[in-house]
Design a protein around this nucleic acid. Structure first.
Lengths: 201, 201
DNA sequence: CTTGCATTTTACCGAACGGTCAACTAGTAT
DNA sequence: ATACTAGTTGACCGTTCGGTAAAATGCAAG
């Protein structure tokens, strides 16, 4: 059972950087198996299909984030709006370090996959949507706390949270198009200028 | 020559909706040829490679936009900031009509392709980057005009333009993840709240 | 010692991939 | 009439795709 778990783990570990740096369609199962030192038959013992693999990969990336930068950024000890700054900074430094190692800016794997597969696979789309929903909730809670603390004027926290998430994804997209993480540094802080007013009371 | 031009045109016409609704890697040349009623050998008479086809497809989409909604939106007769509203509205209505016909929100082809291929093909990335650069310039000119007219307070027009473009792409990404163009309607107008202050005078 | 189960190996499937090639057709210019 | 050229055809290349099936292996419980 230890070995088995290890095989599954190795498959996911081999798949993660590949899906991140290329695309879903462009990474083959054979390549993943070779890199993980696993036979293809073994692969299909653990994953019914390629889609199930990418589902597991998405979960791992989400966990990495949740336990890493996101946990640091949304630290209740920080003043609410500083958490948002922290998150943007984290995205910047992460992309920058990836570029230093890999030579390219890889962007956000959730955004990448969303644009590639969400018209073709509703299960994948739903999974990605759930990730974005959680992210939005973090922003929303933070905004509500900031309003309660009087740090910012009252607003529609739900919509503004969604807008901020959109902006962050858009900034990373533009940065990827320039292969330059400095775009995040340049544009990221403006996330706090986004506002959607509360409607009707 | 008329017939030849027609073949090339038919190939591009067949390719456009496919690249838009699926992805670069997921659309094969064979499928495009079948849909266009063209033999594969004929395809390679007009396009040296698949990449050259998608380059031509990108150009056509860019022309469609430039001659369509963009020309309407950035009408000098409109007050500057209303042009930005117009563009967001245009994106909304376009995505909505695509969804009505196609059943799905397809998003922005430039954003889609950027996230899919820009780590794998620098020529495609450069082409996409050029498209984004032009879009940014439109925003920038508009912002400068608005500042000159006193409609908005002075700001860093270049960076704010880039931020607005990023936001628009991000909103479309999020809308695609929900397969719901209403996201654009909901979040789009907040584009005007984005501001990056001019640095150092 | 044996049964049973999880895991692994190996060979294989049909289909699709991007791209090539030589032969052929048709129109045009000399 | 002939030569040249743009366009078209259809067969073909080797490779890779996601996925399957059966046999072999290892291990643990009865």
């Amino acid at each position: 059972m230890n070995l088995a778990t290890d095989t599954r783990t190795r498959i996911i570990a081999a798949a993660k950087p590949r899906f991140h740096s290329r695309s879903y369609a462009n990474v083959g199962i054979q390549e993943i198996c070779e890199s993980a030192g696993v036979q293809k038959g073994s692969f299909y013992h653990f994953f019914p299909s390629k889609r199930d693999l990418v589902l597991a990969v998405i979960d791992e990336f989400a966990d990495d984030w949740a336990n890493g930068f996101v946990a640091e950024a949304f630290d209740p000890a920080l003043p609410p709006m500083e958490r948002i700054d922290y998150l943007v900074d984290a995205a910047y430094f992460w992309q920058k370090s990836i570029k230093q190692v890999h030579g390219r800016m890889l962007g956000c794997i959730f955004g990448n996959l969303t644009l590639e597969v969400s018209t073709q696979d509703d299960i994948l789309r739903a999974k990605l949507l759930a990730i974005f929903s959680r992210a939005k909730s973090r922003f929303k809670d933070t905004l509500e706390e900031a309003v309660a603390a009087g740090t910012i004027a009252p607003l529609d926290a739900d919509r503004t949270a969604e807008a901020m998430l959109a902006y962050l994804e858009g900034v990373i997209l533009l940065a990827k198009s320039q292969n330059d993480p400095e775009v995040i540094y340049r544009l990221g802080p403006a996330i706090k200028t986004l506002r959607i007013e509360a409607s009707g009371g």
